[in-house]
Design a protein around this nucleic acid. Sequence first.
DNA 1: AATGAATGAGAGTTCATTCAT
DNA 2: TATGAATGAACTCTCATTCAT
Lengths: 189, 189, 189, 189
Amino acid sequence: MTTEERVREAAVRLFAERGFHGTGIRDLAQAAGLSSATLYHYMGTKEDLLVSIMRTSLTELITQAEAIAARAANETDRLVALVEMHVQAHAEKPRETAVVDGEMRALTGDRRAEIVALRDRYEQIWQDAIVDGVQAGRLNVTEPSVARLALLEMCSGVSRWYSPDGPLKLTDLTIQYGAMALGMLGAAR
Amino acid sequence: MTTEERVREAAVRLFAERGFHGTGIRDLAQAAGLSSATLYHYMGTKEDLLVSIMRTSLTELITQAEAIAARAANETDRLVALVEMHVQAHAEKPRETAVVDGEMRALTGDRRAEIVALRDRYEQIWQDAIVDGVQAGRLNVTEPSVARLALLEMCSGVSRWYSPDGPLKLTDLTIQYGAMALGMLGAAR
Amino acid sequence: MTTEERVREAAVRLFAERGFHGTGIRDLAQAAGLSSATLYHYMGTKEDLLVSIMRTSLTELITQAEAIAARAANETDRLVALVEMHVQAHAEKPRETAVVDGEMRALTGDRRAEIVALRDRYEQIWQDAIVDGVQAGRLNVTEPSVARLALLEMCSGVSRWYSPDGPLKLTDLTIQYGAMALGMLGAAR
Amino acid sequence: MTTEERVREAAVRLFAERGFHGTGIRDLAQAAGLSSATLYHYMGTKEDLLVSIMRTSLTELITQAEAIAARAANETDRLVALVEMHVQAHAEKPRETAVVDGEMRALTGDRRAEIVALRDRYEQIWQDAIVDGVQAGRLNVTEPSVARLALLEMCSGVSRWYSPDGPLKLTDLTIQYGAMALGMLGAAR
DNA sequence: AATGAATGAGAGTTCATTCAT
DNA sequence: TATGAATGAACTCTCATTCAT
């Protein structure tokens, strides 16, 4: 693992555990095994580091979501595939995703706009999936926007509690979430 | 409104908007219209203030949840009533609830233990409701704990986006969430 | 005991235990059973209070020392009587005397000058006693100033350790100090 | 002189002149020619700095006192040598010794216990010297503990007034204190 | 006589960041 | 590549003091 990766990993972990404002540059340096001065060879500002983490994570989610949207056999499958991918990502990379979901308010100015735009783009994919599902008669929701928000919150929460060392296997987790998603969206049985 | 209430309200707002660590004592003072020294006539430490906000909010939720659990006609009603109450609380007091849901990690030591215990007590009420519903054959979930976590995350998310000034009325919101909850828990139709 | 006395007593105790700068106005108020605002009905500034304590204590010492100097039968008696008086004062009022001996540096400007002048006046009485004793052939010291300083430090130290509840009676204490003083000043046997 | 030494020296001087609580961190920084933030590269807390100064000074005194106790020809020599060493230390390092003698009360908790233990160890060496002198018939004191306290106070006072630039040479000072000590302890002539 | 409320200034300490080496 | 040294600004919190009631 390169030093840059160590820095990044330390940042992901600490930002997730303590939040951006709760993490000091010295904490980061110590966790990465460097002096705080050396840290600055591997990053810009603390906020740059946060942005970079978020961009990477969100971009990956978007890429996967777009691939799913492109290849899904039907609207139901598409929705379930999105849920499974999202849940899996939050189960496998709980820290990265928790940072994305929880630290957006720490960003300022243009950086914030950039990340918000990415998030909006990701959410739009979900919005489309739900709207299309409803139009196709496969889903039954009163208000697609409300459903989208509720669904995403439900799935994102996984990063806060799931542990791969616990009794629940990842595949079972995604299956359950897929089922719950279909249920809450009133999918035709 | 008393000065103490102004302090509290300022804290709730800023903690919700910027997070505990992102809120300085001077920000708080300014928002409450006081000097930072005067602030300390109306609070203990910054952390004390956070604890107090959380305790108040969680205690209120627990009180309401226990009342619902005591009076509900059947397991389905009980679950829906919990959802409606929770969603309503998060819609009406989005800042207080967001602080409860998001700033627990900022607490330290005994204070943290106290608040975590309250949260656990609240979640247990939900857990019981789900388990009872399953046993009564009115709900159908694979894993009650997973369902509880998913359900609570879904409902708590409301504080992050709902606005009473938007197109969606509060009653419609709660109805939709009730329906989604029943759907995701596989309620008998 | 009047409130003013309570304030004074609290100040004496706290200044002695923690020092002037180590004692806060809130500590004083609490020790006197008042609010910090009420405190200011019974005193000027914190420094005024210190000056007042010192003035009272030093004036009393000077009065007693002058009486001794006026009535002593001979130079040896005079020296011993000064020692006994000084030791008794430091044993009976350890806090007042400790404040006088230890907090002079906390004073500023004119206040400091006033107290320093009182202390110098007191020390002059001792200086005269030693010089007269030497001239009378009753004492034998190389350098009267050095002897005076050494003697006063020795006697003042009593306030730091003597307890009336301990095994040593006050009369025995003063007798021992008188004997030690004569010894160190080379008194004719 | 290294920066660390400059910090230490500044602290010794200011703590001696104004007391620990009377010295601010910004005073310290200015006296050392640093910003207050930079100060913290060279010390832990302000109290750590105080402890370190005291430990160094007391350890040196103990080392010297133990060496004297080990090599003294007889009980009288031993006592005089202790006095001379102590007086010399207080004359040559008046600030360090004044801090040791006067700021112990500013310490808290374990730090205080550590320093008190060192001081007690040092005083025990004196106590032994006096007791041994009495048993050997070379000293004549009523109460060794009282004599020890009086003697140490007398000698420590030197740091408060002696100046190497004054008329009194250091060797004369120590000789006079040795003579006074023997006198006050009733040494056989 | 008594105090709650108020505050500017300052306390000790840490912040994120820079730079010469 | 790596870091000690450095700092202005900011941190949370307390200071001594005043004043209207």
